[in-house]
Simulated assay, not measured.
Amino acid sequence: MKIIINAANLHIGGGVQVASSFIFELSELLKSQRNTDDISVLCSEKVYQNLPLDFDKRVFTQFDILNTYGLGQPSVQVKDKFNGFDVCFTVFGPLYFTPKVKKHICGFAQAWIAYPDNVAYQKLPFKEWLKNKIKFNVQSLFFRRYDHLVVEQMHVKEALGKIGYADKNISVASNCVSAIYDDRNQWITLDFNVSQLTNDVVLGFIGRPYSHKNIRILNQVNEILVSKFQMNCDFIFTFTETEMQQCGFANKDNFYSVGEISTKQCPAFYDLLDALVFPSLLECFSASPIEAMKMNTTVIASNYPFVKEVCDDAAFYFDPLSADEIAIAIFNAFSNNELREEKKRLGSQLVNALPTAKDRAISYLNIIKGSL
């Protein structure tokens, strides 16, 4: 079987982490077992940069680093690299052109499509609402064309079924914590002066400040913590300077950013935190709460199924639409050390019971091989 793994379209966010983890785990599987398949990889520069130091690309038939972007059509030479395979597996789509392959399998992680009536839409200005509606309707047309979709949680498969996607053409492969969290030799330190942090409690968020992440509400949360609870906290993010300004964080003395970070720097980021605050309104799955628990960091998060189905009783929960509730959840978490430690213990147990990165790679490979 000739297989092409496509991660050339992934440049930011969790998709880069999943792709780099999968490609590495796949390379390890190919080293450890007799393989009769012809497996090639196309990956973006960002994905390549996030691969572990001991990654060996020689186990693949072909390994190319190239970048494809959005609706922009790649050159004929680039398109040719996708053609002639039995199966193309795009780790996360959509891919905006049609490779000449027998089967095209695509990872799906677009919650805006799975949940078209989500609360995040209600918070958008009309122009942005309209732009998103058009964008995700176009994306949905592409997703419906693939032979098979792979989602990260059962609730996403069920949601897609409700809007007309064929159930038999959707598989679930659970997300997980990257193997890098178990290998301290891979960790890279942050270029951040810790002495800037002057408060007893350090809260943080990892990722990009997309509108559905609901990050700007932390401006109000900070004010409530100070005025109502006399609780002074430092907040740390992984945003660019422009993003900090857009969120209204740039001029706040207790709001900091370490800048954009790589997968190898994520453990160091969680190590800075007393708690991850995760006020997202919409996800298919987010790895950050379970990554935080892996790093023994308290999780304070939205009381929505995409978090609670994974974190269960190991997190503190709030209504993400209420700054007061978020502040209360933070205050309660740090007012009860015994309960906070118990939740961290539960989180550690939960993470250890999850599928591993190797398990996920095996699941992907089984889906690919079972497609013909």
Rank of each mutant, 00 (worst) to 15 (best):
N193D: 14
I188A: 08
R144V: 03
R144W: 03
L160A: 10
K135H: 08
D167C: 08
D147R: 00
W129T: 01
I188E: 14
I180N: 09
S174T: 12
F192V: 06
R144N: 01
L124A: 07
K133L: 11
K168R: 11
Y181C: 12
P125T: 05
V156T: 15
E158R: 10
I170Q: 05
I188P: 00
Y146M: 00
H148N: 04
D147M: 00
E158I: 08
R184I: 15
I163Q: 11
Y181P: 09
S178F: 07
N118T: 14
N169H: 08
T189C: 03
F136P: 03
G164F: 06
W187S: 07
Q186P: 02
D182H: 14
G161L: 07
N193F: 01
I163H: 07
P125C: 04
F136S: 04
R184L: 15
H155E: 13
L160H: 12
I170P: 07
K133G: 03
F126G: 00
A120E: 13
V119K: 11
H155N: 13
A166V: 08
E152H: 07
R145Q: 08
Q139K: 12
K133P: 01
Y121K: 14
Y181V: 14
E152I: 03
R144F: 02
W129C: 02
V172A: 09
N175A: 12
K127H: 04
I188D: 05
W187D: 09
A120S: 15
K123D: 02
S171L: 09
N137I: 00
V172C: 09
V177C: 13
K162M: 11
Y146Q: 00
T189A: 13
L141G: 03
L149S: 02
F143M: 01
K135I: 09
N132F: 14
W187Q: 10
V172N: 12
V156K: 11
D147H: 02
K168C: 07
Q139M: 15
D182P: 08
L130W: 03
F192I: 04
F142L: 05
M154Y: 11
P125I: 03
F143S: 03
G161W: 04
G164P: 05
Q153T: 13
V177D: 06
N193G: 00
N132M: 12
A179F: 15
E158C: 01
Q139C: 10
F143G: 02
K135C: 04
V151N: 11
N193L: 01
F142S: 02
H155W: 11
F126D: 02
D183H: 15
N175S: 13
K157Q: 12
F142H: 06
K123V: 04
K133D: 09
K135G: 02
K162N: 14
F192H: 04
V151H: 12
H155F: 13
G164Y: 06
S174H: 15
R144P: 01
F192T: 06
L160V: 10
K123M: 09
S140T: 12
V177I: 14
Q139P: 02
V151T: 15
I134E: 00
D183K: 15
A179S: 15
K127D: 03
A173G: 03
L130H: 00
